[in-house]
């Protein structure tokens, strides 16, 4: 029964054209970034490694599909959450807008089953979007630029051996899903309160934008507060591309995100179960 409900919700999600905005946006943006890297990638690498070029001769290619994928992920990680809110914000509010809540709930399913099925279907959409991003970024990247050792420029310059790259991307996919799941859960949470999807979409977007701006503030005392923002932990997948992975920091960030998902989703389930439904 529950699986049928999830399938039904997935059918609903993929019947709306707004669902495809995310897929189309990624489908357009990723090849554009690939083309830009094809034209300017060499310059980017040269600038990043300028300090070493006075003492070393560089042999072999540093631009490859792995490196480009990481850059794409960094670019898109700020914007993909905005696309996810389009679907998340509509999950419950959309039913209210179209007046189908009561119609659905007179069927022999509990409210809890319905809300969990909707949450699960939305989560599957998020997972598909993340997988689509990786397939396109990594697949097209490897096709255009090939493979090789991966250069990662952060506060230090890391060169990761080719054999050591794919498992890091494997875990990154899982972590990226977790990050996007938090955004989806927030928009799903707000979606349960209102009868129009614009509100939860705009609210989630506003939270993301405000927290991302606050993350950029560089005041010593502020860093403790920044630690509490989920946006600070959303990009912890980059830790996986350090030479020595700080697993403690990685799992702490993952737990904070999981905590957000649990608190917000359970709150939504409880609220929805008791909610007065008038439409």
């Amino acid at each position: 029964m529950f699986l049928k409900l999830v399938k039904l919700e997935l059918f609903k999600i993929f019947s709306k054209w707004r669902t495809y905005i995310g897929f189309i946006a990624i489908g357009v943006l990723v090849p554009i970034i690939h083309l830009a890297m094809l034209a300017e990638g060499e310059t980017l690498i040269e600038v990043s490694t300028r300090v070493l070029r006075s003492s070393f001769d560089f042999n072999g290619e540093l631009i490859n599909g792995y490196m480009v994928t990481r850059i794409i992920m960094q670019f898109l990680f700020i914007n993909i959450p905005l696309l996810i809110t389009l679907v998340g914000g509509d999950m419950l509010a959309g039913e209210a807008t179209s007046g189908t809540y009561r119609l659905v709930l007179i069927r022999p399913i509990s409210r809890l089953q319905l809300v969990i099925a909707k949450f699960t279907a939305g989560s599957i959409y998020v997972a598909l979007l993340v997988i689509w991003l990786f397939i396109l970024a990594l697949g097209l990247g490897v096709l255009i630029f090939g493979t090789g050792d991966m250069i990662v420029v952060r506060y230090s310059i890391n060169i990761i051996p080719e054999a050591d790259v794919l498992w890091r991307y494997g875990i990154s996919i899982g972590y990226s899903f977790l990050s996007m799941w938090v955004v989806y859960t927030i928009s799903f949470f707000f979606s349960s309160f209102v009868e129009n999807s614009i509100g939860p979409i705009i609210t989630t977007m506003a939270i993301l934008i405000v927290l991302n701006i606050l993350n950029m503030v560089d005041i010593g005392a502020f860093s403790t507060i920044q630690e509490l923002f989920f946006t600070t932990h959303m990009n912890a997948w980059i830790i996986l591309f350090d030479e020595k992975i700080d697993y403690a920091a990685f799992f702490r960030s993952a737990l904070i995100l999981i905590g957000h998902v649990l608190v917000l989703s359970i709150s939504t389930f409880i609220y929805f179960n008791k909610k007065d439904i008038n439409s």
């Binding site: 006075s54 860093s223 830790i239």
Partner: peptide, 16 residues
């Protein structure tokens, strides 16, 4: 060798 100095604006709060 010259030291590598990444501008703060390019890193997240985690790396500051």
């Amino acid at each position: 060798v010259p030291n590598f100095k990444m501008p703060k604006a390019f890193v997240g709060p985690r790396d500051k």
